[in-house]
Amino acid sequence: MRTDPILRVCNLSKRFGGVNAVYDVSFYLYEGETLGIIGPNGSGKSTLINLITGFVKPDSGKVYFRGRDITGITPDKAVSLGIARSFQLVRPFYNMAVYKNLVIPLYSPRVRKLKGGKYGDRDEVAIHLLEEVGFERDSQVPFKTAGTLPHGYMKRLELARCLSLQPEVVILDELFSGMSMSEIASMLPLLEKINREEGRTLIMVEHRLRELFRVVGKVIVLNFGMKIAEGTPAEVMEVEEVRKAYLGSEVEAGA
């Protein structure tokens, strides 16, 4: 027997008005695994993330982190436990210098508890983190205001914000959207490093399937808020319902 899953979601449901945004979704994930969540627009992927990370309270169902019930936890508590998420719509602090953006998460109780750090040190750590996610060293970019960054860099900044929290579970909501092919290609080794070397559990919501399948070992497919398939990328692609609901033309064109 293996130990408890790091994350277990049981029969999670959420209604918005008359719409089932997420309906009876269950899955589990062991430490160090990677999971992709895919599905057509409006299928409840982002809501599922919001339910897990505490931004939205579920109507019913449970979320367990390392066997502990964390249903309806507040987002900051979720981070304190080690679950960090990025936003689909990038939300940097537009008026601050890029590296100062990372001082905020570095000031959080979680990071302070893990390794202390004083005023001033955080700036150094922030610049180092930016370098890690692909901001060129010795360039002026980390010192510009975040509002002036190109979109791809904002996405990297979002990723850096997640990583700065030293999370055990990293949840990335459409990290690749709006990134060019070469930008994505440069992100893939980093994601592998996060997962393989640092052993962080990775959950990715994505529309860019081909790139996603290079990173994740397991996929769940949502449609109209319900889980319609689960398995390895290859298995999922074979499911008739998945092809019909979502992949359709892309499978024929791509595979």
């Binding site: 990370t53 931004f55 507040t74 987002p75 900051d76 981070v79 304190s80 960090a84 998420r85 990025s86 936003f87 939300r91 940097p92 602090f93 905020i104 998460p105 000031y107 959080s108 109780p109 979680r110 990071v111 914000r161 929290l165």
Partner: peptide, 8 residues
Amino acid sequence: RSVLASGI
């Protein structure tokens, strides 16, 4: 929301 997501 970003501050919340930063664990504060």
